[in-house]
Amino acid sequence: MSNASDTIILGRIGAPYGVKGWVKINTFTDESTGIFDYSPWLLGPAHKQVTVDQWKSHNNGLVAKLSGVDNRDQAEMIKNLDIAIQASQLPELEEGEFYWRDLVGMQVVNDKGYNLGSVKELFETGANDVMLVQANFNDAFGQKERLIPYLMDQVILDIDKASKTIKVDWDPAF
């Protein structure tokens, strides 16, 4: 149905809940119930399209009844499948805002023109978000990876989507 790069994984189907086809939902969204803002869902590598008939909070988690899943056996068959959506379902961002997925693969260059490498991934820490930058093969400072704080206007000076470059105030020796 779609290319994997055109989809975003928002969660995973958990264990069956009850006998009427309900399943537990493990969500990767910032706000746990935010996963229900999107429809349809694409399940597993085949991207089988499903809609959520009902959902509710249960204890400290979420459970949902999906279309076409009407008993415990069917719920067991979709257990552990990823829940994805089409990237086009994400809301449009304001100027100067970026989805992390848009930053992965961009070149990171410091304010003196030194190419630090490319963004491998981003992740959250307690204090701030961090970019994991894979250093270039011939890095003059012998670095393989760098952890660079994602702090706009302090460390991150500019993000140019057209040239796929992130300009940073960062010493290449770190």
Rank of each mutant, 00 (worst) to 15 (best):
S57C: 07
E145H: 06
N110P: 10
W100D: 14
E92I: 14
N115Q: 12
Y17D: 13
G113V: 07
W170G: 10
N59H: 07
S57I: 08
Q54V: 03
Q154C: 04
R12I: 11
L43S: 01
W41P: 00
L157E: 01
F137H: 11
F123I: 06
E124S: 13
N110W: 03
A75D: 06
F98H: 14
D171K: 06
P40Q: 01
I166V: 13
G105I: 13
T125D: 03
F28P: 01
K65H: 14
K56D: 08
A127E: 08
E97V: 06
K112A: 12
F36P: 00
P149W: 02
A173Q: 12
L116Q: 01
G21A: 01
D169H: 14
G61W: 00
Y17L: 07
F98C: 05
I13T: 04
V104F: 01
H58A: 02
N60S: 12
Y114C: 08
M1A: 13
Q143N: 15
E121C: 11
L43P: 00
S2L: 15
F123A: 04
K65R: 08
K24Y: 07
K161H: 09
E92P: 13
S88G: 10
V19L: 15
G113L: 03
N59W: 10
N26Y: 11
D169P: 09
P16C: 09
Y38N: 03
I85Y: 00
A46T: 15
E31K: 14
E95G: 09
G96E: 13
V19A: 15
L66K: 05
Y150A: 09
G11I: 01
N115P: 10
L90E: 08
D160M: 12
T165D: 06
K65T: 10
E145W: 05
A15V: 03
Y114T: 15
R146K: 06
M1S: 14
A87R: 15
W100C: 11
T29M: 07
D70F: 05
L103E: 05
V130Q: 07
L132Q: 04
V23G: 02
I25T: 00
D102V: 11
K120N: 09
F28C: 07
E145Y: 14
G142Q: 03
K79V: 02
K20C: 08
M131N: 02
M106E: 02
V168K: 00
S2Q: 13
T51D: 02
N110D: 05
L43A: 01
V104P: 11
S118I: 08
V52T: 13
Q86G: 11
G44E: 01
G68I: 05
T29L: 04
N128M: 10
A15I: 04
G44Y: 05
M152E: 15
V119C: 04
F123T: 06
N71Y: 03
D37W: 02
L62W: 02
I9A: 14
G117T: 13
E145Q: 05
G113A: 07
P45I: 11
T27L: 11
G68Q: 02
I8L: 09
A46Q: 15
K79L: 04
G68F: 03
V50P: 00
A46M: 09
S39E: 10
G126E: 06
P45N: 14
L81I: 07
N138D: 14
N136V: 14
I25Y: 00
D139G: 07
N115S: 12
Q86P: 12
I13D: 00
E97R: 15
E92C: 11
A162V: 14
